[in-house]
Design a protein around this nucleic acid. Structure first.
Lengths: 306, 306
DNA sequence: CTGAAAGCGCTAACAA
DNA sequence: TTGTTAGCGCTTTCAG
């Protein structure tokens, strides 16, 4: 068509305030230029960070990323899946709430739309997966501790929810690297659990240790409680986190942590959502970020002045 | 119709795997049983917390809350508005990125759908608003400081973005309560700004003060940097935050803060989204949460041992 | 109560 | 190139 007619029509449309109705378009095209992301919880800063990075990654693609919170509830999660499918999202990205219980949601989703599990993998399904190589992360932790900690110093693991695949894999990784005879505490992925775990460690009489936490948010709780108990970090206790997003820099002292490759994960998700599947499952290696809570340079157990 | 026919049909539908196509329904009904929430950024824990509370509040209503991140960008924000409107959301809730620049988005939204500004108000629009009474919050801060701090101790304000209405209102509130002759630093709503502000305060030679921060996330940065500088909280410096969500309990020491009434705000939004507008604008009074960083009981400026 | 038909706004396909 | 038509899946309406 001629360019001037084109512009006349366009400006007339604009003048009349015409906007496409995307619902009509979606009905006709049987696709909506929309991707859905279901997170268990916005309050977990790692999930928020994933949501933020994904939003940024999707923006240039023309696909709008819409996010729904499952509020850590399996029924709500399933409702989110049904809602997104009913709205004809072109892809569904899901951070499952639960290693077993989320199977229903994943199965339901994957029989209707391209479905990608993020961060946590439900073992019984074979939907696509993108996440971090937790075993490798624990290997990095072990290398760091071996290189810099006093070998007589106890190493303690403060885990997250063992019923999520990330909690589960990190625990296994820890055992493989450090042996199965260490003190291990299992809990939840939140700061309160960190508080309680640290209190437990102090109650058991520890005055020095390297504490490996399954998530930064747990490590923050640990740091706070350890210092409230009058101990010093890294003087008495060393603390190492996992995730490496935002919060780890808020800590005092700053947190040594395993940084998840959030950008690379987001890119992988985008290309999968666009229909490109090099492999079923993508695991990207994380990296170690050394900071004050477990510094470089061999350190020795201090004797506390009583 | 007869109940047994009903159940026969229902089970047959279920067996065949029938699911309503919500796009078709939305097209016909001209509504989608969906509300849109646009946040500037998932990484700000206060926004995440609002998103989480709103999700929980909306869940029982049958309306799905879908969240979109504007990534702190006005064009992306507008795109989110267009997308939600094109998808026929029944209500649009917006935390504006910018006190002035978000006007376009708000205007565009409010001419097509029930639009509610949350937390930050764009002055030039008259769309509905739900937020916290920032002036009242600063009054509570003043009462607390007057009751418990040494009256000779300097009071310093570390602000957020003065171009957002919340940053702006809190600064005004601070001035009204404490006078305009205090040290005031203006910055951004993030932890890094807190670090830098604290460094500035120490560089200026302060060895003791009560620091009022415009947000908890800023206060966390301040706490970290003050303590890294070898000073004690609350021994040398007192720190008071604003928001009172999640992160304030992660701090070490725990943070005295003004707690925003997030639940009440969410309820107000839900009823507005359902079409009930008691008033144009709702401001709910926050409350003071006293913790270790600025405790109860009159405290005195300590002389530091050098 | 049951059945048929129209039409929400859009685009893909086909005809002129 | 331009114009027409059919139909995406649903619900509302109106007739039987």
């Amino acid at each position: 068509m001629s360019p001037d007619i084109r512009s006349t029509v366009l400006s007339a449309a604009d003048e009349l305030g015409y906007r496409v109705n995307l619902v009509g378009r979606a009905l006709r095209q049987r696709r909506s230029s929309t991707a859905g992301l279901i997170v268990p919880d916005f309050d977990n800063p790692f999930f928020s960070s994933l949501a933020q990075h994904l939003s940024r990654t999707f923006a240039p693609s023309g696909v709008d990323l819409l996010v729904f919170s499952a509020d850590d509830d399996l029924d709500t999660e399933l409702r989110g899946v049904e809602s997104f499918i009913g709205r004809q999202v072109d892809a569904l990205i899901l951070i499952p709430c639960h290693e077993v219980g989320s199977e229903r949601s994943i199965t339901r989703a994957s029989e209707s739309v391209v479905t990608i599990q993020l961060d946590r993998q439900v073992s019984s399904t074979q939907a696509h997966f993108v996440g971090c190589d937790n075993a490798h992360g624990m290997r990095l932790v072990h290398e760091h501790v071996a290189a810099h900690a006093d070998s007589n110093d106890p190493v303690i693991y403060v885990g997250g929810d063992p019923e999520s695949s990330s909690g589960h894999e990190r625990l296994e990784g820890f055992r493989r690297e450090f042996g199965a005879d260490r003190l291990e505490l299992a809990g939840r992925f939140d700061a309160n659990w960190g508080f309680r775990a640290a209190q437990k460690i102090l109650d058991l009489g520890y005055e020095s240790a390297t504490i490996v936490a399954a998530a930064d948010i747990i490590a923050l709780g640990i740091l706070s409680q350890i210092q409230a108990g009058g101990f010093r970090v890294p003087g008495d206790f060393r603390v190492i986190g996992f995730d490496g997003v935002g919060v780890s820099r808020l800590a005092h002292p700053t947190l040594t942590t395993i940084r998840q490759p959030v950008e690379a994960m987001s890119e992988a998700i985008l290309s999968m959502a666009m229909g490109d599947f090099p492999t079923e499952s993508v695991r990207i290696a994380p990296s170690l970020v050394t900071a004050e809570s477990s510094p470089t340079g061999r350190f020795h157990t201090r004797t506390r002045s009583s």
